[in-house]
Design a protein around this nucleic acid. Sequence first.
DNA 1: CTGAAAGCGCTTACAG
DNA 2: CTGAAAGCGCTTACAG
Lengths: 348, 348
Amino acid sequence: MATIHDVAARAGVSPATVSRFLRGQRVRSAEAIQAAVDELDYWPSAAAQALKSGRTHTIGVVVPDITNPYFAAVVKGMESVTRSQGYRILLANSDESCEREDELLADMVRRVDGIVLAPAREQDQTPMHVRDAGVPLVFVDRDLADGEQFDAVLVNNYDGGQQAAAHLLGLGHTRVAAISGRQESTPGRQRREGFMDTLTAAGVEVPPAYDLIGDFREEGGYQTTLSLLSLPEPPTAIFTANNLMTLGALKALHDMRVDIPGQVSLIGFDDLDTGPLLRPPLTVIDRPMVEQGVLAMRLLLRRFEEPYVDDTARRIILDTKLIDRASTGPPRRPTGPATHRQSGGTSL
Amino acid sequence: MATIHDVAARAGVSPATVSRFLRGQRVRSAEAIQAAVDELDYWPSAAAQALKSGRTHTIGVVVPDITNPYFAAVVKGMESVTRSQGYRILLANSDESCEREDELLADMVRRVDGIVLAPAREQDQTPMHVRDAGVPLVFVDRDLADGEQFDAVLVNNYDGGQQAAAHLLGLGHTRVAAISGRQESTPGRQRREGFMDTLTAAGVEVPPAYDLIGDFREEGGYQTTLSLLSLPEPPTAIFTANNLMTLGALKALHDMRVDIPGQVSLIGFDDLDTGPLLRPPLTVIDRPMVEQGVLAMRLLLRRFEEPYVDDTARRIILDTKLIDRASTGPPRRPTGPATHRQSGGTSL
DNA sequence: CTGAAAGCGCTTACAG
DNA sequence: CTGAAAGCGCTTACAG
């Protein structure tokens, strides 16, 4: 493969001049150099450039699962930004594993300029080390327990949980279950807290059997829903704390031939592309996706601007929004202090 | 950041010895070096290693759209392989654009050891150049017109198109429409050909208004379906050539309050995670997804084995399979040389 | 505007 | 097993 020396020799200049030309500086022999570049099919070595300049123009992105449509959308947003700025993305899945995340981060420290991370656990220590090593870090979707010093793009998960609970309460539900994400993760903890606090404040108690922890995966949503349905007194409404678990719950409900929302109402967190097309169309707590990726990447790239002065951490918290479709409705026979704004179910 | 010299100095050895230790060779001062590495929090510079060794241990992956669940699954499969082999993935979307793909490829040539590509067009020339530059290339999902010299993992798209057509013919449809992908792409062309050939062979003619070309995106599926429905004589069955267009078609059908499969049958190519949960559950041509990624990456990494002798191109063609769910059924009133294996529709 | 030269941080024959 | 030395392919002050 041709090197900068080959190009220089062919164009009759020094390698330094070729280098200057390539970085857009004005040089006398521009045409000759361009011709040599074309003829030799020259492309600079990224490794040599990185070694010399200390910049890789690559951003590491670590998410729990790229097949989760939410993260796919977030990554898409990030890519639209990196593309326009001349950066590229080194992508990896942590698989919700802290150990895996640590390995990935360690591996990335010396090959990227910065990292966007959705930490698997709020107690992670590795991000601090990475930052101490001089690699800027931005959180997306998830935070650290003591993450205030990091840039972050998050949503108001607590609020989202509240909205979900308020919606079910408004329909008259009192036997309400929640399938939450791991409590060591930001969205797992916050969504559950918002949901539970709202129920408690309304005088609705949630028995332990109704307060389940999933794994943010479809399988977890499926299994926990089955366990809920096998209870002597199953809930009349279920809140699933992310898109994949919602899908799992929906599958379980279908498999058990449960009428939605006749027998059980289902409200999920995070909308799906297929949300309106499902049986029944899904009621969900929605939030920006692509936009989160865009904002997170902008926050990160901003740290590479020269001169860079403003060193304060930027924390962006976006709002959630209820999308009321058809998977929630009033319970068949209100069993508690039901509100009375709905016309009521007729069956049984 | 600490360098190998710092570690060497602290351990009282030469940099060469540290380097040997790090690559697993036997050295006398192993403990001292390990201690120095730990204390200094040393991590080798990927750029320096790449420059010196000529290997980046990074694989470039270029797909049309990572938010397409099919490609997300393929990438997941690829990642499971790279992970276990000490490689990482540089991921990028071509957005179905040839120009964008060219840019990405050119950019990657000097920063990866190999590339897995789903070419946007069968006439692409750039892959040849990349290969000539010494970077191994494997195709996945899509091929080049003269791609026999490249490793590839594909599926029998023609066969899949045939299966879809045979299924609709078997139900008695004669007014059959197809929404295909761009004919310059492998799956766009092959799926349509298999579908059309089968109809033609059965004596069913497809008018131009029924033979539409989409863009493999949801929006394309939506718009073309609307145009189909606005025809004086709309089709009784639609074949959509990929998952996203199927979703778009389903949305259009819902929006126009068309009964599926009562008024219109819908059969898609590529299954969806939500396939069984949709209204109605989708009949599709299915194919391996994660597995394709695994196979493609194995094919590629095999080229880096030492010593590498077998230089013949490996072409893997996987089979498709019909999943018969509920979005297809007999037409309301058979209008052509209908077969008679179904019990027939009752309405109208 | 241009060139000679140093150096980024490693790896690897080459001697010992 | 070990060290000194060269070199991977660039970039960038430093002079001119």
